[in-house]
Write a protein that binds this DNA or RNA. Structure first.
Lengths: 346, 346
DNA sequence: TCCGGTAGAGTAAACGTTCTATTGGAGAGA
DNA sequence: TCTCTCCAATAGAACGTTTACTCTACCGGA
C-alpha cells in the first residue's frame, strides 16, 4: 500500500451524511441562502456544532476565483507607521471577514514584481499599495487582470484605482496655529526626500499654514530629509547653522522629528525650552522618547477602513472610476513644544 | 443570459491547447517531475512565458490540503520587536516559496480563537505563536488536526511542537562583562511582568551573569516592569529611591530601557555620565533615541529561519518529538553606557 | 513474427464548495 | 384518477491542478 497523507478532514458531505441530507442543504444552511425547512436547518446547525465543522474557503476560492483576501504591499516595516497601519488594516479586515496577504518590497523592484505575482497567485480581490512611489510597469499585471488597487497618499488615480491620502493642510494648520499661540513667529521645516510628490505636498501644506496666520515663510529655514532618523538629524544640524535660528521646527514625519531631537539633545539645546519640535504620523514611539513628541496623528484605523471600503466599491462596481478619499488628522500636544523663548541670539 | 462573472483566467488546459499537448504535460514541465521530451519541454516553456501564465496554487491546496502557508500569531504589534520579527519572517518565507498568514490577538482570548480558526480554514501547514503565554484551550484545535506549532521563548515543548528561545544567559553575560570592564560594580535590573516564565528566566540570567563576575546581586536593586515604556519608567523611578543607587541598570527589553531613559532624562540624571542603561532586543528605534541605546540584539532573521526550519521538520516527520532551539544574541555597544562614576552619593 | 520493454504523452479522477437543473411528493382542483 | 403547482431537497457539474493509470509507437531480441 502506498504512503498516503492523512487528509480529507471533515467536509460538507460528511456532515450531510451524518444529518441525513445532501451537501447542498448544508451549504444552504451555512449561507442562509434559500428555503430550508426550519427543523432541518436546526438539526443541521446542531450537527455542525457537534462535529465542530470548519469550512474550507479554499474550495470556494477555486470555484469563483475570489478569495475574500486583500493584499497589502509595503516598502518595509522600518518606519513604525507601517506596522501600525498594518495592525489596523488586519483588524479591520478580520472584522469584515476578509483575509490579509502581506508583502514587503524593501523598495526593490524585483521584490515588488514578486509581490504582485504572489497577489495574483493567491487570487486577491484587491491590493493596497503603500509607499507613494512605485514602478508602473511592476503593477501592470494587476491592471490587466482588473484587480482593484488603492494607493496611500499617492494623490493620483486612474480608472480602476483609488487613493487614500491624508489632510496635511489641516494637520500643519493646527500645528502652526498652536505654535503661533505660544508666541512662535519663526518656524523651520524638516522635509522629505526631494523629488517625491508627497514631500512637495507636505511642504506646500506647511507654507500654506504659515500664510494663513500671516507668518513669513523663510526659505532658509527649510531642509530636506529622507523620512528617516538620520536624515532628520542631518537636516536639524544643518538648520542650526542658519544665521537666525527658528524657535520651532515642524517635520515631515515622526522619524525626522526623532532625528531632530537627537541632534538637539547632543548639542545641549533644550526642547522645548530653546526649541519646539513637532512630528507627523503619531507613531506610538512618540510617547516613549523624552521629551514626548508633539505630533499630528494619522488615524491608521480610519485610513484602513477607507482603503477597504474603496477596494470593495471598486470590486463591485464595474464603473471603475478612480476614487479619492482624504483622511483627517489630529493634532496631539505632548512635551516637545512650549512657549517661544523671549530672546534668541545665535 | 445570466449575469456571469468574468472568470476562468489562463489555466493549464488553455496553455496545453495552445501547445498542442495535454495539461498533464504542462504540469510535468512546470514541476520538472517526469520524463518530457526536451524539445516539448522547451516549447511549453516558451509558450508559458509568452502567455504569461500564472499558476493557481489554490487548486493544489484544495487537492492536497496543504497550502505552503505558515501562520504567525502575534499578540500585538506595539512592541517594535514584533514587526521586526514579522518582517524577517515574511522575507524568509518568501525566499522558501511559502506564504504568510498573519493574525494578531491583542492578547485577547476570543481573538486568539478566531485566529486559530482562520489558520485552520486557510489550511496552514504550521503556526508560529509569539507571546510566551497563551491559553492551551484556544490552540487545542491545532493539536487535534496535527498542525505543527512553534512557540517563541516559551521554553516548553510537547510532542508536535517546537520552541525557539533566546540565549539570555549569553546576552546578559556579555552586557555585565562590558559594564564590569567600565568599572561598574553595583547593577540594577528592570524586569518584566511578574509571574511570567520568561521574566523569571531573564532575571535568573542576569543574576547568573553577576555571579560569574563575582559581583553582588542586590535584591533591592531589582524592579518589576511590564515590557512596556511606562512600566520601565515607573520601575526606574522606584529604583532611584534606593538607599544606594546602582551605577548601571540592565533591562528586560528595549521598551523598558526607553522608559528608564525617559525617567532619567526628566530628572536631569545624565546618561551615561551618572547612569548606564542597557536594553534587550535591539529594535531599530534604539538607534533613534538620544542617547542611542546600548542593547543586546536578538537576530530576528535567524529566529525566523529557526522557526521555519522547525516547522518544516515537524511537518515532515511523523516522529513529532518536541524540538528546542536556542538563538544566540549579540551585544551592541552604543551611547547609553559609559564609565562608572567615581563617587556616588545619594 | 511475436513479445516485452521503454519513452513519451494522454485520460480522468479527486480535492470541497456552490448552484443550476431536476426530482419527488404532497396537496389542490377538475 | 389525472394533472398542475409548489415546496424541499438532491444530483451533479464546475473551478485548476496533480498523478496513477493507460495508451501508443518504436525498438531489440528470440
Amino acid at each position: 500500500m502506498k504512503h498516503r497523507v492523512e487528509k480529507t478532514a471533515l467536509n460538507m458531505r460528511a456532515v450531510a451524511e451524518r444529518a441525513g441530507v445532501s451537501s447542498a442543504t448544508i451549504s444552504r444552511v451555512i449561507n442562509g441562502s434559500s428555503a430550508v425547512k426550519p427543523e432541518t436547518a436546526e438539526r443541521v446547525r446542531r450537527i455542525l456544532k457537534e462535529l465542530n465543522y470548519i469550512p474550507n474557503p479554499i474550495a470556494t476560492t477555486l470555484k469563483y476565483g475570489r478569495s475574500n483576501t486583500f493584499g497589502l504591499i509595503v516598502p518595509d516595516l522600518v518606519n513604525p507607521f507601517f506596522p501600525e497601519f498594518l495592525l489596523a488594516f488586519e483588524q479591520v479586515l478580520v472584522e469584515n471577514e476578509h483575509e490579509l496577504l502581506l508583502a514587503t518590497t524593501q523598495s526593490n523592484e524585483a521584490k515588488l514584481l514578486t509581490s504582485v505575482r504572489r497577489m495574483l497567485m493567491r487570487q486577491v480581490d484587491g491590493v493596497v499599495l503603500m509607499g507613494s512611489e512605485y514602478e508602473t510597469r511592476a503593477v501592470e499585471p494587476l491592471f490587466e487582470r482588473r484587480i482593484p488597487i488603492v494607493t496611500l497618499d499617492r494623490r493620483r488615480v486612474q480608472p480602476g484605482t483609488g487613493d487614500v491620502s491624508f489632510n496635511f493642510e489641516g494637520g500643519y494648520l493646527q500645528a502652526v496655529e498652536y505654535l503661533y499661540g505660544l508666541g512662535h513667529r519663526r518656524m523651520g521645516f524638516l522635509g522629505g526626500t526631494k523629488g517625491i510628490r508627497t514631500s512637495e505636498i507636505r511642504l506646500a501644506a506647511f507654507q500654506k499654514a504659515l500664510e494663513h496666520f500671516g507668518l513669513t515663510y523663510y526659505p532658509e529655514l527649510i531642509r530636506e530629509g529622507d523620512y528617516r532618523v538620520d536624515g532628520g538629524e542631518a537636516a536639524m544640524v544643518s538648520l542650526l547653522d542658519a544665521a537666525r535660528r527658528p524657535t520651532a521646527v515642524l517635520t515631515v514625519n515622526d522619524l525626522t522629528a526623532f532625528g531632530a531631537l537627537r541632534a538637539l539633545h547632543e548639542r545641549g539645546i533644550s526642547v522645548p525650552g530653546d526649541m519646539s519640535v513637532v512630528g507627523f504620523d503619531g507613531i506610538q514611539m512618540g510617547g516613549a522618547v523624552s521629551p514626548q513628541l508633539t505630533t499630528v496623528r494619522i488615524p491608521a484605523r480610519e485610513a484602513s477602513q477607507a482603503c477597504i471600503q474603496v477596494l470593495g466599491r471598486l470590486r463591485d462596481n464595474i464603473t471603475r472610476r478612480g476614487m479619492s478619499v482624504s483622511i483627517d488628522v489630529e493634532f496631539m500636544v505632548r512635551r516637545s513644544t512650549g512657549r517661544a523663548p523671549r530672546v534668541r541670539a545665535r
